[in-house]
């Protein structure tokens, strides 16, 4: 299964964290730091796999992609195929790119919920449920539409800035 998905900036700041195995919250920061140290020490143009036993326990592997200012990291165990996971990272990045039209770090910073929606369309409980980026984009758009329908009932605007900008 997939044990965790992380998006970490090249500054070492987490942009998206999702654990599919229980990790105590007080350990999260340590895990992010461990992964970041591991990745930032690796030169460019080397393999995308790293053994992560030291951080995530025996048998854990890590696949990552370094794109612009972000590391996209999937942590998985022996039940997943390495190259398939690499593909999945690619699918995730492609989907983000489609959803945000040329995704950049700021999109990810400001779209916490949407990011989770996208990820949840792809992975559930550590199992891959959808691998087609098109399908995922479709589902995400559908969800956005449903939410919009539902939120027309809302009387109070979400934030003052929204209110003023109207």
């Amino acid at each position: 299964m997939i044990q965790a998905v992380m998006v970490i900036s090249t500054q070492g700041k987490p942009r998206l964290l999702k654990f599919y195995n229980f990790q105590p919250p007080e350990k999260h920061q340590e895990l992010v730091r461990g992964v970041f140290q591991l990745l930032s020490a690796r030169p460019e143009n080397v393999s995308n796999f790293v053994e992560a036993d030291a951080i995530f326990g025996p048998g854990a592997k890590l696949v990552y992609k370094h794109l612009a200012t972000l590391y996209f990291v999937f942590i998985f165990d022996s039940s997943e195929n390495e190259l398939a996971m690499l593909d999945l990272v690619q699918v995730f990045v492609e989907t983000l790119d489609r959803c945000f039209k040329n995704v950049c770090e700021l999109d990810i910073v400001f779209n916490f919920n949407k990011l989770h929606t996208i990820l949840d369309e792809m992975i559930l409980g550590g199992q891959v449920i959808e691998t087609s980026s098109e399908q995922i984009v479709k589902s995400v758009e559908e969800i956005a539409r449903l939410e919009k329908q539902s939120s027309t009932a809302s009387i109070i605007p979400k934030s003052i800035s929204d209110r003023f900008s109207r």
Binding site: F110, I156, K158, S159, I160, S161, D162, F164
Partner: peptide, 26 residues
């Protein structure tokens, strides 16, 4: 634009709701 609601209201009020910061603001 909006400034942070600094009034230390004892109970949540409508004012809080009106002047609440969204996640984007945060």
């Amino acid at each position: 634009m909006a400034s942070a609601p600094s009034a230390p209201a004892t109970a949540p009020s409508l004012l809080d709701t009106l002047f609440q910061l969204s996640l984007d603001d945060l």
